[in-house]
């Protein structure tokens, strides 16, 4: 793990480097300002939660960071490289990989094929139109290991469309992990999961964050309090506050934003 030594008062503390940074990020749809002047640093080996009420602009921030929609203003950098104008597929190849709010799988492909497709490009096996599908068998072991990590190995020959919503989310995470990303962006990864699966998945997110940065949008505040090192609260497209869960949750502005009552 590379760390930058930053001055903090008189003492020197080690703070993990910011892998993904955004400065002054803004997005306007017509006359509506969906995201306004967002500054964000996502650090290596830390889980960063992006929370806020519905319509706060969390998914829009995700889409801006992963370049799925162009920003109106601001800059984004990944490991120091400016990616503000980089194409989304290239951003993914650079190691910034996301999941989607509505589970994104390949429905008419088996679970094994879903994960294997993600493994094909990094392994240089995406363009061979003259070879048989059997040539992809060397990826099966790795694909199966990833399915095992999310507990889906026994269903590997089933179609993704046959899975329950929660399991589709698990499959999506396995597919995302197949790219071994430097930064993992998870959009509501625990939505639709049963309580048992939530604990398993939260554990998995903590584990994978040991050697990569994770930014997640999540409504389950219990999980956020348990696994997230940093929390950023968005409201009406603007950052309300950033800090650890304890600090953020005691902020009266955050309470007001969630309760809809200034006196809360």
């Amino acid at each position: 793990m590379t760390v930058a030594v930053l001055p903090f008062g008189d003492a020197h503390v080690e703070k993990p480097r910011a892998v993904l940074s955004a400065r002054g990020l803004s997005k306007t749809f017509g006359g509506f300002q969906a995201v306004r002047n967002v500054d964000l640093d996502v650090h290596h080996a830390r889980v960063h939660a992006l929370i806020g009420p519905n319509g706060a602009g969390k998914t829009t921030v995700f889409n801006l960071l992963t370049k799925f929609i162009p920003s109106t203003a601001g800059t984004i950098s990944l490991d120091g490289a400016d990616i503000t104008r980089t194409a989304p597929a290239k951003v993914a190849r650079m190691g910034l990989v996301r999941s989607f709010q509505i589970s994104a799988t390949f429905p008419q492909m088996t679970l094994l094929e879903n994960v294997r497709v993600a493994l094909q490009r990094p392994n240089g096996q995406a363009v061979q139109f003259w070879r048989s599908l059997g040539s992809l068998r060397n990826l099966d072991r790795q694909a199966l290991e990833l399915l095992e990590r999310v507990g889906l190995q026994d269903m590997r020959h089933r179609l993704a469309s046959d899975l329950s919503y929660g399991r589709k989310r698990a499959l999506e995470i396995a597919t995302t992990l197949a790219l071994d990303p430097r930064v993992l962006l998870l959009d509501e990864p625990l939505a639709g999961m049963g309580q048992e699966d939530v604990s398993v998945m939260a554990g998995l997110i903590s584990e994978v964050a040991k050697d990569r940065a994770v930014l997640m949008v999540e409504h389950n505040l219990k999980v956020v309090s348990e696994i997230c090192h940093d929390v950023t609260v968005l409201q009406r497209g603007e950052i309300l506050t950033t800090g650890d869960y304890e600090t953020v949750s005691n902020d009266p502005r955050v309470r007001a934003a969630y309760m809809g009552n200034e006196d809360a």
Partner: peptide, 10 residues
């Protein structure tokens, strides 16, 4: 099957 997902996989 899912073009957006394919893009997000690089």
């Amino acid at each position: 099957e899912n073009e957006t997902r394919a893009i997000s996989l690089g």
